[in-house]
């Protein structure tokens, strides 16, 4: 399986990619904070920030089609929650406000994740003195997500090649059993990883 579908362009070369991680993360957070704090009638700001974001995307050399598709994939979550706001007085205004605000925030994060590999974010977390246990767990987790996804895909294929029914109840049971299997395998793998860590002098 290709594992770069999420942050496919995070490792390409561009002036944006070369910026320091700390700068990019702080910039993104400040931008999101401003977006949240500003009232809706500050149209100027929203237009300005959108132009800025588009500018950054162009400099980053990430295909616009890819960025937009990521935005569209994630937009339903935003829509789903914001619909709740329609059912109250002046709901339409709140609805539009939220939609604009969260789309800007979402696009900011998409840009951030696609210009900064996750391993760089991990390095940055170490630099800003996030407890080492937390960063270690996060790093191990990030590393093994992809291994476990591959594991799960292999199990799913093995199952599909042997079963012919697509009964919903069956699928539920099989998927749940699969989760159990993945857990058992992860625990066994954790043991082997521990051996490998010790073999290279860990504790």
């Amino acid at each position: 399986m290709r594992h770069d579908f999420i942050d496919r362009y995070s490792r390409i070369e561009s002036p944006v990619h070369q910026l320091s991680t700390g700068f990019k993360v702080s910039a993104a957070i400040i931008l999101i904070l401003c977006t949240i704090l500003l009232p809706i009638h500050s149209y100027g700001y929203f237009i300005l920030i959108s132009i800025c974001l588009i500018g950054v995307s162009i400099i980053s050399r990430i295909p616009a089609k890819y960025l937009l598709s990521r935005l569209i994939i994630l937009e339903p979550f935003v829509l789903g929650v914001s619909i709740l706001s329609l059912f109250q007085p002046k709901g339409e205004i709140i609805f539009v406000t939220i939609l604009v605000k969260s789309s800007i925030c979402l696009y900011t994060i998409i840009l951030l994740t696609n210009t900064t590999p996750f391993s760089k974010i991990l390095d940055w977390l170490k630099v800003i003195h996030i407890p080492s246990l937390f960063v270690t767990i996060l790093a191990l987790m990030y590393r093994y997500i992809f291994v476990l996804i591959d594991d799960a895909e292999r199990m799913e294929r093995a199952r599909a090649s042997r079963s012919f029914s697509t009964n919903k109840r069956q699928i539920w049971k099989i998927r749940a059993m699969m989760i159990g299997q993945i857990f058992i395998r992860s625990i066994e793998r954790a043991d082997r990883i521990y051996s490998a860590m010790r073999a290279r002098g860990w504790k």
Binding site: L133, T136, I137, L138, A139, L140, M141, Y142, R143, Y144, I145, V147, L148, I182, F183, S186, I187, R189, A190, D191, I193, Y194, M197
Partner: peptide, 12 residues
Amino acid sequence: HQIPLVGLAAAF
């Protein structure tokens, strides 16, 4: 030995 265990559990 529980550090890789918790990491893997998170991935799980």
